[in-house]
Design a protein around this nucleic acid. Sequence first.
DNA 1: TATTGTTATACTCTATAACTATA
DNA 2: TATAGTTATAGAGTATAACAATA
Lengths: 140, 140
Amino acid sequence: MPETDADPLAESTGYALRRAAMSMLGDLADRLAAIDCRISEVSVLLLVNKNKDITATQIARALEIKRANMVGLINRLESRGLIKKIPLDGKSQAIVLTPKGGRRSARALTITQQFEDDLIARVPAEHRNHLLPALRSLWL
Amino acid sequence: MPETDADPLAESTGYALRRAAMSMLGDLADRLAAIDCRISEVSVLLLVNKNKDITATQIARALEIKRANMVGLINRLESRGLIKKIPLDGKSQAIVLTPKGGRRSARALTITQQFEDDLIARVPAEHRNHLLPALRSLWL
DNA sequence: TATTGTTATACTCTATAACTATA
DNA sequence: TATAGTTATAGAGTATAACAATA
């Protein structure tokens, strides 16, 4: 059976970057299904946990999510009782974790840290310490 | 002005991988707009150019695209006169480049090779040779 | 029976434009 | 004037289930 010749994609760092990211995101999404959360939702929970009285706009800037797309994300977390909104003034509102959200955030942190350990363990030792700096150099 | 504390995301290889891939894909998509092609379309053109009489199902396997999602992709390329379908038997059909598709594929290759060079150039020299093998180890 | 191509459908993520109210 | 939150909308990628025709 003749295999397809994937060149020049096979030698492409860009293509490998996309495939590695897709693979990684699929794995992480599967693990986060255990706490009924999407990757984007967990990103918000962890960020809110670390930053008291952060606003939706600040979250959007930190995660490079468009403000318009924060609305559904925040509302979904709020409707599940994981976060609540607290008015800071007439215009801004802080996003804070509820007790339930705090517990969910803690579980999310456990899962993501284990995920991170497993991810790094798959990289051969001689390349391991180069990966994060290399990725950061591409992270405009 | 207090900045947001993005930890633990800031130290996460998984997060950096996602951000690097998103940044890279955005850059590439911008460059491919010059030849009015999406990234997925160019992937198909380059693959078809390298593999004579490849079928849509084989393309789908090589690029890890679901067969159902190949239909629109192939039809869009066909309606623009870049590829044509040639029956192999009553069930399978080869996807081949038209002359116009061949020229488009050549331009796509020039753009993607320049893109690749620019991408690699952004990685500090001491990490450069480690990136591709590290990514491949994560590419399940 | 398994495979190819296809239709239909749905969900996620991303993106822009424009509106309201407030700083 | 600029910013925060929001609405509406659209495009792109990805996913599954199911079907007809053919190997």
